[in-house]
Design a protein around this nucleic acid. Sequence first.
DNA 1: TCTGGGGTCCTAGGACCC
DNA 2: TCTGGGGTCCTAGGACCC
Length: 434
Amino acid sequence: MQRAIALIDCNNFYVSCERLFQPRLEGKPVVVLSNNDGCVVSRSQEVKDLGVKMGAPWFQLKDLARRHGIIALSSNYTLYADLSNRVMRLLSQWSPDQEIYSIDESFLDLTGIAESFSIGPSSPDSLTRYAQHMRRTIRQCVGIPVCVGIAPSKTLAKLANHVAKKQQRYDSVCDFNAMSAMELDALLAQIEVGEVWGVGRRSTSRLQQMGINTVLELKQAQPARIRAEFGVVLERTVAELNGVACLELDDVTPPRQQIICSRSFGVPVSLLPDLEQAVIAYTTRAAEKLRHQHSLAGGIQVYIRTNPHKESDPQYQQARLLPLFEPTNDTRLLCHAALGGLRQIYRSGYAYQKAGVMLTEIIPATARPRTLFDDVAAQQKSASLMATLDRINRRMGSGTMQLLGEGVSKNWSMRRGNMSQRYTTEWDELAVAR
DNA sequence: TCTGGGGTCCTAGGACCC
DNA sequence: TCTGGGGTCCTAGGACCC
């Protein structure tokens, strides 16, 4: 039986989330900005039509924005995560095999599904009708528009989704399996090679130098040649383009092997005490994520850097990896290590733009190695203190209890000029009909 | 004035070992 | 004058993704 892998992708996800609660944004050019209102991370169709690129710095667009009345919103991840969960939960009903690939994308294995869905003999378009049913239901129950691509491999499913989005005549659902080989190749010949999942900017220009410009040309390239020039990853992509599924659906997300927490500051920071507050805040977040996945970290890296875009300023960047005496998820021990590292790398006289921490050598909490010096009582005390801390912050709101060192005024914290309410997760901010 | 944040995987090269 | 071969582990950096 033909493999049928679907990729469901929410349209302009963050913008769609905002529009759901602010209908006045419908039909208007809207962007959602990254932290610090730095870059464009989501664009409405109207904004895409104006030629605004993903990741464009907002300050460079101010002029265009004024001319066309572009509305810019700060990102509201609490809202997006909640709506994402609702979409993903709905999707999980339509296949036993789901991989949640990102906040706005999910793979579903639909192999053999159409037969059980359609009454009577299955036709080439019965999977298309199944996908249209999913689309309508998501639109109705959550309010988010999605597109669906279906194909025998994940890489092709991504492309099918791209086609569903770009070409009106497919009505947001594109099933490569329902096409003839000739039809499909004719379609692939129209798509630029850079659209392929796994082909980034660097590979695109090198492929073009080799005379490979379209998806079809990459599909028909010699695998051995691709392997020699680019390595095993792109060779696998070529196989996937030929309908050979090399990438399985990962339906269980493995625990993270590294946990990063870093932020740019709202204003440049020069003083060590401010950096210390930021590092404590970031380490606290990272430790929460670590405990959430029931893990311990064996090391923590701390880094600081100046603004590389301000070339006239003196530049400095440094990182320090601190091994921990034993693997831990105790915020206090992690902060202590991180602060030690920060004080080693800090140099006065620079305008720092960003700091971050990264937890490494992560192991499951159940795999804690035994040592001669184990202080079991202290470990238990730490575990129950951290559990209490997490419980209070979960119930009363993040940051209700924190280390004093994180500071209260936080004059380094980021700018978020125009953030919408947390309409679905905070009692004070619920959307109510008026 | 103003340029995000958080991940994964692969490869090359060095250190080290027998 | 001439100085092996093969393996592992670790790290840094590159490329890519959303």
